[in-house]
Amino acid sequence: MVGNLVQGAVFTVMVVRAGMLRDPAFEHELAEQIRLSPRFFLNAPVVLDLKEAAGFAHEAEFAEAREILRRHTLTLIGVQNATPAQLDAAAGSGLASFAPNAPQPSRSPPREPTRSAAAMPAAAAKTRLVTQPVRSGTQIFARGADLVVTAAVSPGAEIIADGNIHVYGALRGRALAGAGGDVEARIFCSRLEAELVSIAGHYLVSEQLPPEQHGFSVQIALVDERLTVTRN
């Protein structure tokens, strides 16, 4: 039965060399990278590579590493290339041990970072589909996914997606695409009558929307940090 409960999965995980953590230039560069694609890095799992790294034999040092990464929205989940002493301290800090070349504690089945799976960005997020009208007062959030609504979105309703938003009906409420910061996200609707549209935090309220596009089938994109509305 256990075989059914424990399943294997393969994840892409960032590896950070332990030595770099203490380099101020690295933190600066990391911050720059994250600024460019905040969604990708949000709560992303990180493995600390201890190859040829001095220290890290105490739990406090892992706590510090975890704190540095946390500042950049990253989550430390494990170590690799650890010495036995480092591995002990890492295990004491609740960190997993990753291959290659790590002395693995004998166990079967092999290491399984499934506990942290929830924190990982899904490889291919499923689109959230809504087929009923989105009524006033309702809020729909497609976390880490696109949102498709095949009915009208009423005034006073709010639809939010980390990805793109498609409304195959009148968009009369608020639509916020790229909620996690994705500047590439777009909003498509077959009738623009929105109260507010927003992409990656840039927004326009209905007064600011071009009146000549009102009631038309449009798409809204972020171009040079400005929301642009174009007729479909």
Binding site: Q132, R135, S136, G137, T138, P155, A157
Partner: peptide, 13 residues
């Protein structure tokens, strides 16, 4: 009309 829309949403949930 807007309040009615809200009520319809509540009936559905």
């Amino acid at each position: 009309v807007r309040d009615s829309d809200r009520i319809i949403g509540l009936l559905a949930s």
